[in-house]
Write a protein that binds this DNA or RNA. Sequence first.
DNA 1: TCGTGTGAACTCTTTCACAGCG
DNA 2: CGCTGTGAAAGAGTTCACACGA
Lengths: 203, 203
Amino acid sequence: MSISNNTIERICRIFGYLDSIEKEKIEFISSSELAKAIGATEHTVRKDISQLNVIGFTRKGYEVKSLKKELGRKLNLDKHRKACIVGLGRLGTALLDYEKFQDDGFQIVAGFDCSINKIERIKSDINVFQVNRLKEIVKQQGIELGIIAVPAKSAQSVADRLSEAGVKGILNFSPIKVNVASGIIHLDMNFTSALRVISAQFK
Amino acid sequence: MSISNNTIERICRIFGYLDSIEKEKIEFISSSELAKAIGATEHTVRKDISQLNVIGFTRKGYEVKSLKKELGRKLNLDKHRKACIVGLGRLGTALLDYEKFQDDGFQIVAGFDCSINKIERIKSDINVFQVNRLKEIVKQQGIELGIIAVPAKSAQSVADRLSEAGVKGILNFSPIKVNVASGIIHLDMNFTSALRVISAQFK
DNA sequence: TCGTGTGAACTCTTTCACAGCG
DNA sequence: CGCTGTGAAAGAGTTCACACGA
């Protein structure tokens, strides 16, 4: 039986939480604490975890280290992955230096933009290139993830370029939905839509 | 009967899409075209729209202008809303000047940070303040939405401040889940979690 | 004919309830 | 006891199927 998207999302949030408490040397955690941390019910958390055939300890909860390891193993979250950012405007450059990605096992190894001027002006530890070198660099560096931070009108063409270059996943920050070949995993993060979803629930 | 969260999300995406094609002077659109644009099935789109008691025209689809107007009215998306950003690091300042918000009816009217130095350095059309003036400015300006762009360790205290200041909704870009009083709508946008959700589906 | 509107069928998720175990 | 693990029940959400109207 395959794992549902909701379950995957919750497990990823749990994984992130485990990562943060592992550093605080917390050894055991119960399903109800996990539930509170990620905003779900304890039943759902237990169900999610049991679906992955990971087991806890009666009366003590789950052992943080081994739970994290197991969840990571089952969902392939334990590998370091390389990513690149396309579009080096305000948002793109902010993401380029977002240290959290590094901490969490995602290494931004390249930035791309179509404007040569912009590329020359950027001061970052990360290498930046013109977008026509995208395929070359993706192949050469083994980049698995592409992050789109260009305006709406170029987003689809960037998505096409990334697909063609061979990335396995795309995180899209542009305000349009991009279409990609099946087989490439993608996720749209639309800021305006998020604000609308919030506003729609007012009062 | 209340409207489900999934439906709200899809309607918000539809609303955004309608907004973009309205500018292109497209008059009618079918459920299947909408479905494609937002990544859903045409059945779901029709169901969602009919739940809001909005009607289309047989054989022609929905009239773009009136559909947008109706969806906007039902979900309160037709009002301009004021927002503020707390945390003026790379991400915060990028969001401060994210023109899309303005186009889409969300006006960023203030930025906050705890560092005076940072505040003095920022050059933006938007007014920036020290975070201890948050409540004052939120009240004075009638700000309904707070956007959190601070690091994990200060995110919860910022959420508390925003709640206390009286915002109705919070969009959280920090990597931890924040807890807010029920009645305040909030949504967490966790970039790392998004990359993990994508990676978990690889191969 | 083509595309909407909607009850009904179906499928997927979540919640419940309780057995099991230290 | 307290907390996990899991089949079963309940609840949501999605898809289907077809009536309807231009």
